[in-house]
Each structure stands twice: as C-alpha cells, then as structure tokens.
C-alpha cells in the first residue's frame, strides 16, 4: 500500500498532529516504505490462528469496588500547563469549546 498526500493528511488529522503541506511528500514516502516493509506478513498463513494481544497468561485480576485513593487535589494539578484557577476550585483549562 502506498500512501498519497491526502492519506497522510487524514492520518495526521486522526493522530492530532499538525503537519505542514511541505512535509507531506516526505512523510508519504517514509510511511509507504514502512507499510511496504510490514506487508511481507501477508505471505504467512494465519488461518485459524487466534490473535495474541498479550503474552501474560493471566486473567485480569478483580478487586473490591472500593475507593483506594483520592484527595490528591494539589498533586493532580501540580503539572497543569496553564490557567489553573485556584480561587474557583482548581481546574485544567482549555481553549473555549462552546460558542
């Protein structure tokens, strides 16, 4: 599969990474090269082979549904990049999303 510029733009959009128009050609070449490389898997017969999502031979453990942590208000916000409004209770802030 070779990717064209439009496909790269669509992938970048899905990944939420801004890509400048002048980078698209180069990226299309690189990503197509990688896809070409991984496509050799097509020659492996995998009929009836169940997909392996983890090597851990474990069933996910259950625990009691109780509160184990909390009250870490200052720690949670300690690395917030911008605009934590302390006197209004403390929030992460983002650009306005509602007109």
């Amino acid at each position: 599969m070779s990717l064209d510029k439009a496909a790269v733009r669509a992938i970048a959009e899905l990944a939420r990474i801004e890509v400048r128009d002048e980078e698209l050609d180069h990226l299309a070449g690189e990503l197509s090269g990688i896809l070409h490389f991984v496509e050799q898997l097509a020659e492996v017969n995998t009929d009836g082979v169940p997909p392996m999502s983890s090597v851990a031979d474990l069933t996910l453990p259950m625990r009691a549904d109780v509160v184990t942590d909390g009250g870490q208000f200052a720690a949670v916000l300690a690395n917030a990049p911008d605009g934590v409004i302390e006197d209004q209770g403390g929030f992460f802030t983002v650009p306005k999303v509602v007109e």
Binding site: R16, I17, E18, N79, A80, P81, D82, F92, V94, P95, V97
Partner: peptide, 19 residues
C-alpha cells in the same frame, strides 16, 4: 495533549491546541 501536564502550544480551538 497539552491539557493536564507537559508542553502546551496555544491554538485557536481545542483541536488546534492538540495538533
């Protein structure tokens, strides 16, 4: 994504900030 920790580059919208 620039919201809770690490680098943030301001953008015109939330999506633009992410990107």
């Amino acid at each position: 994504d620039g919201v809770r920790f690490g680098l943030r580059v301001e953008g015109s919208s939330l999506d633009d900030m992410y990107k």
